[in-house]
Design a protein around this nucleic acid. Structure first.
Length: 270
DNA sequence: AAAGACACCTGTCCGC
DNA sequence: TGCGGACAGGTGTCTT
């Protein structure tokens, strides 16, 4: 579910309840996520959360004793609930604050993760080799152009690769390529700098708008208060196979690239 | 080094 | 109604 806008919406949502708050208890009901939750996560108990940050799709809760690294995978979400509220199925982890406010991880598919590191979290194995943040100045046409030279993979798979740029998942890859008028089938290494300029602009616009609307809810993504995200109504191509293009009215196509569905307009995207 | 297939897991939807 | 198969917002690892 979560791409960068959904993760950022989640980070913003939990921050008022966690930043500068003390963790009273960590409850793990199901440790078998993408990676086992380390027992050291209990070191978080008694600690003050000194920052609530995000790097790519990872949420970082930093304390003096270490940092919890949370990833939501495909189906994860965080809610704020009151301490002691009976857990539903797939409510795997609770971070109970001293205030009683509880961050509850719900993740049916269990592709998410909760890790613990005592090092600088930015140096963690899963994080250190990530590409630039898409909304930062480091993500620009010159950068994308340079790192794409000689790459034969499709432009769509390229921008979904977290080592090139973080946060662009299947929905926003499709949407930004549509907005930029670029076919998802182009080889990344053959896309011109001018077209990368347009693509970078559109990625920033699409992600920014989606964050403003609380992300996209296709199915089960919820903000921390349980509300859905409202960006779905702005989707031009994702999930619209066979429907008319909003721009030219030809039928939106669906193909498979890298074992993921791609949606695009064969007329508007060349 | 790069690209592609596969893995992890559960829920839902569609066709028969 | 039941069953099998395809598919779903991610990404590390293994094999070419």
């Amino acid at each position: 579910m979560p791409e960068l806008p959904e993760v950022e919406t989640t980070r913003k949502g939990i921050k008022p309840y966690t930043y500068q708050q003390t963790v009273a208890k960590v409850i793990v009901r199901q440790p078998k996520l993408r990676w086992p939750i380390p027992s050291e996560i209990e070191q978080m108990e008694g600690q003050l959360i000194e920052s609530v940050r995000r790097r790519g799709k990872y949420i970082l809760l930093e304390t003096n004793a270490g940092t919890a690294i949370i990833h939501l995978g495909m189906s994860g979400s965080l809610r704020i609930v009151e301490e002691g509220l009976a857990p539903d199925k797939h409510d795997h982890v609770d971070l109970v604050m001293a205030t009683g406010k509880t961050v509850r991880l719900h993740d049916p598919r269990r592709f998410g993760s909760v890790l613990w590191t005592q090092k600088n979290p930015l140096k963690h194995k899963l994080i250190r080799s990530l590409g630039p943040e898409p909304l930062s100045d480091d993500f620009n046409a010159n950068y994308l152009y340079e790192v794409s030279r000689g790459r034969s993979m499709s432009i769509k798979q390229f921008i979904m690769n977290g080592h090139m740029v973080v946060g662009v998942g299947n929905i926003y890859a499709c949407e930004s390529l549509f907005m930029a008028g670029i076919s998802p089938k182009w080889q990344a290494g053959k896309v011109s700098k001018v077209r990368y300029q347009k693509l970078v602009e559109e990625i920033k616009i699409v992600l920014t708008k989606a964050i403003e609307q609380g992300g996209t809810t296709l199915k089960d993504f919820v903000q921390v208060e349980g509300k859905p995200g409202y960006f779905k109504q702005e989707l031009n191509v994702y999930g619209r196979a066979g429907e008319g293009c909003n721009n030219c009215e030809s039928q939106i196509k669906q193909i498979t690239q890298g074992q993921r569905s791609t949606f695009y307009c064969g007329k508007c995207q060349r």
